[in-house]
């Protein structure tokens, strides 16, 4: 479905992408076949902090290249699940498998805060994302390519402190993309942005995901965002997957369409009914 869509993009989408990053299309055509996403299998995953059992047995399979959004009330364990997938924390029991021969550079995380090094120029911040390849001779050109992808190549020699919140987050995205990850985990990356910047960032996320074909896992508290971006929305409640909703709307999705609004309403219904029980 994704491959079919990638080859037949409507005019409107192309125009808005051209506005965002004039060089992006050129870069895409030059790049050899992109690395594909990794499938992800989670079995009976549990995690507690002290007496507080945050995850109470998660079973989940994510096919390669799928865009999955995880929603839930705060404290439901969605961020913990993401941190476990990204390898930032260890599970108490259960397993997460990403197939064999996974390199550290294959999994990248983007946080709510950009976490840029304030003492490094934009380009060196992106180079940090290359991991062990930082010292290689093509580090510069790869970082420049990633910056072009997010439309910020003209800021390459700036300090991060002069960038706006949205621009910082785009640099963080370039840093995550520069190693061509096969799984990209987003921990509410747009949570701190204003509404308009958010929408353009959502478009950017969707575009790079379609270009690069990584498996995307997005933790968010914004159900509209989840529905707009994801193939599948998981509702987590009390440490378990309460609902697994497939979003079949064709891409590019029209924001505010009746179909998405209805879906958003039913997911919000799930979340709120969970709220009423407690």
């Amino acid at each position: 479905m994704q491959t079919a869509l990638r080859t037949s993009l409507p005019e409107t989408e192309l125009a808005s992408r051209a506005n965002f990053a004039p060089h992006a299309r050129v870069v895409r055509e030059e790049r050899p076949a992109h690395s594909s996403g990794l499938p992800l299998s989670i079995r009976a995953l549990r995690k507690s902090y002290g007496d507080n059992e945050v995850l109470r047995g998660i079973d989940l399979h994510i096919p390669a290249g799928q865009f999955v959004a995880i929603v839930g009330k705060s404290g439901c364990g969605k961020s913990t699940l993401l941190r476990l997938i990204a390898g930032l924390e260890k599970a108490d029991s259960g397993s997460i498998s990403l197939g064999d021969a996974v390199k550290p550079e294959d999994i990248r995380v983007m946080f709510q805060e950009p976490r840029l090094l304030p003492w490094a120029r934009v380009l060196s911040n992106v180079e940090v994302g290359l991991g062990r390849d930082r010292a290689s001779s093509d580090a510069h050109s790869r970082a420049e390519e990633a910056l072009t992808e997010v439309g910020l190549i003209d800021k390459r020699d700036q300090w991060p402190s002069v960038l706006s919140g949205g621009q910082k987050q785009r640099v963080a995205l370039a840093r995550a993309l520069v190693s061509h990850p096969r799984v990209l985990a987003f921990d509410e990356p747009l949570g701190a942005l204003d509404a308009l910047t958010r929408i353009s960032m959502q478009r950017l996320l969707e575009r790079v995901w379609r270009d690069q074909g990584f498996t995307a896992i997005l933790v968010t508290h914004d159900v509209a965002e989840a529905v707009a971006l994801a193939d599948r929305v998981l509702v987590i409640d009390e440490g378990r997957i309460a609902h697994d909703v497939t979003v079949n709307a064709a891409r590019p999705r029209e924001r505010g369409s009746a179909e998405l609004a209805a879906l958003e309403g039913s997911i919000l219904g799930h979340l709120l009914s969970a709220d009423d029980r407690t």
């Binding site: 990204a86 930032l88 550290p104 550079e105 990248r108 995380v109 946080f111 805060e113 976490r115 090094l117 003492w119 490094a120 940090v128 994302g129 991991g131 062990r132 840093r175």
Partner: peptide, 27 residues
Amino acid sequence: PQLIEMGRIYGMTDGELFRRVIFPGAL
């Protein structure tokens, strides 16, 4: 600490983490 975590995620060795994150941050 968020920058230190970021450095670790991106595979910095202890030496790199000191040179690129901790020392400039303490300067």
